[in-house]
Design a binder for these strands. Structure first.
Lengths: 202, 202, 202, 202
DNA sequence: TATGAATGAGGATTCATTCAT
DNA sequence: GATGAATGAATCCTCATTCAT
């Protein structure tokens, strides 16, 4: 686990994001990150256990921040339909506004080794939980269908957003990611609405 | 490009799948694959340009086979709703029946370098096209909504299936992937049905 | 030792010269020579013990031919001064007329391994002997100085011609090698003439 | 280009000379040089770009040193005849005193690849220039003949010395290289003296 | 805390040679 | 004699990590 004291901790994380976004995961050596952060190679090991720890921390810090911000915004929305839209908006706009982070999370960090991937998965679970909270709220309010497992629905929501984000990054931002917010919202809402449930239930 | 003649070509590809599934991408040395295939290290280079070419070929061959099989099955289904279900079924059952391949495609190959990823992306596009054909057919028949871009819908379908498969692999198959076929079918159908379109269109 | 029967022996040697001249010693694989000679890789091993044997044979055959031709020409010249000139002329014109061979003998084969170099040295000794015969003849006739060892004089003659040839190849033939015949002849003659000996002898 | 600071730079170069002289160019692995220098393999790459850079540096440093020393000695000699003798003496005694270096420069490094050979050629040109300076001085003073191009004369001088050195190394030092200094001096002086020019000029 | 020189394990690839046909 | 598919040994270099200062 990384020491989180001192501003060098943040400096190194931010440097890592820039380096990975610029050079790609496989060209992001510790020495390069150290140079970008204006510290010595060895200094990184005062704040992080090893390179994997830096990468996991990048994801945890940035994603943690994003989850906190999203949770706050959701609290200010009254309807679950609105919350679903806010979730979609936050997910896509967050990445659209941070091309570097988008490249890092959608492409580069996925090339990392099992240790890093496990660390990422851990953080991702918090996000999964947030999505599932919204789904459960919709079910409790009788707005969302109840005939499909919450986790399956969460897979659809996250999978859709993740695929949209990855496509956008792969196509180098040649389409407007934010323009996807409403179409995706409409699709997901149609999938989730209770009305549609009746006809499906065999 | 790999020489595709001779049965050694297939032997090596199959050996690669087993090795990668067992040891992980980062522990799959050429020598290990050669031993598993019962050939000399150098023999691999008679059939493949380099290690990357082996990995890309693994994906291309296996995915190509899958796409062909899926396309055939879809032709034998008359309704688009049925085709959508067949697509979901094929995607999930294909992976559920080949744990090794599932691990390789959902986890390991995503850790590969940019060259391999590009080769994979190329094959993936064929699958995207197949999904989009089904969507367009549904639209043409007036069964699927037309107010959302085909590509956005494809992102939802592929994203949902991909996330389900990844979750299943990450949880080491601790839930029944095939049990997800119908719930996902219901969700996607609700999202796509034309009826639902009316109320959404602003 | 190579089998010298059959025309494939010559075919392979000639192919080797072309390949080495074109691609350089370090890029002249057995397979490449075989292709150039229009035979299978394995066929080369019916005529030569191994790759080194091919290279040594190239030098021995070509150099042997050259030595024979030079010896014949020398016999038709009456004076030793004339013979020295003929020697210089043959050496330089032989290389000037066969750029491929010049590249091979002056540059490429010198990069070879100790085994090949030893084989070459063996053939070279015959040439050394020819040069020394001319020197001894001049000494016997009282035309050339006797106060310097024959081998030292031979080193000067061969060293001068060899350096001239190497310079010419390195400069890609940008000067006229044959124009060096007379200047070199004048220099060597001055060095060897008996008159000059008197003042030098301490 | 190699970092030339620190004594490890010199340590590695000296180790390389010993290893190449002992095992031959084709048996001088980086690991062997590192062990001989008592450093880790990777340390070599802190001081040299790659293996070729080590080899070129060996030649450049040792030859550079030799050229500097020779130039200094030449300055202390007043006559061109004396300078020519000093040049011959320095060339042969330098190699006679450093069997390892003699083996490396006369035999082993000539087996190297084109990159190394080019690096060597570059340094050699400085030596060519030094030789030509002496020749021009002799011409300017009216001591050396002017009817032969400076470069041709340089080819004779360098070619003679180089062939003598190579012969000595090939014969494993079985004759006294330094005993060749005066005979070669006499030969070259006879070749260069102005008096001899008159009779030659047609 | 901070430095950065030093470490050393690890792997893809080439190519001369063989030998069953 | 001729083939060419198969073999497998051999090596340079990178880069995460350490530790003396």
């Amino acid at each position: 686990m990384a020491k989180r004291t001192g501003d060098k901790y943040q400096t190194i994380i931010d440097a890592a994001v820039r380096v990975i976004a610029k050079y790609g995961y496989h060209n992001s050596q510790v020495a390069k990150i150290a140079r970008e952060a204006n510290v010595a190679d060895g200094t990184i090991y005062l704040y992080f256990r090893n390179k994997d720890d830096v990468l996991v921390s990048v994801f945890r810090e940035k994603m943690g921040e994003f989850i906190r911000a999203t949770r706050e915004r959701l609290e200010q929305v009254s309807t679950v339909e609105g919350k679903l839209r806010e979730l979609i908006f936050m997910h896509l706009s967050h990445l659209a506004q941070n091309r570097d982070m988008a490249v890092v999370t959608q492409i580069e960090l996925r090339q990392s080794n099992p240790v890093v991937r496990e660390g990422i998965r851990e953080t991702l679970k918090q996000y999964y939980r947030l999505i599932e909270e919204v789904i459960r709220e919709g079910m409790a309010e009788g707005v969302f269908r109840r005939d499909v497992d919450v986790r399956t629905i969460r897979m659809m929501i996250f999978g859709t957003l993740d695929e949209a984000a990855t496509s956008w990054v792969m196509k180098k931002g040649k389409f407007d990611l934010l323009a996807q917010v409403d179409p995706i919202h409409r699709l997901l809402l149609s999938a989730l609405r209770k009305e549609s449930q009746e006809e499906e239930t065999a």
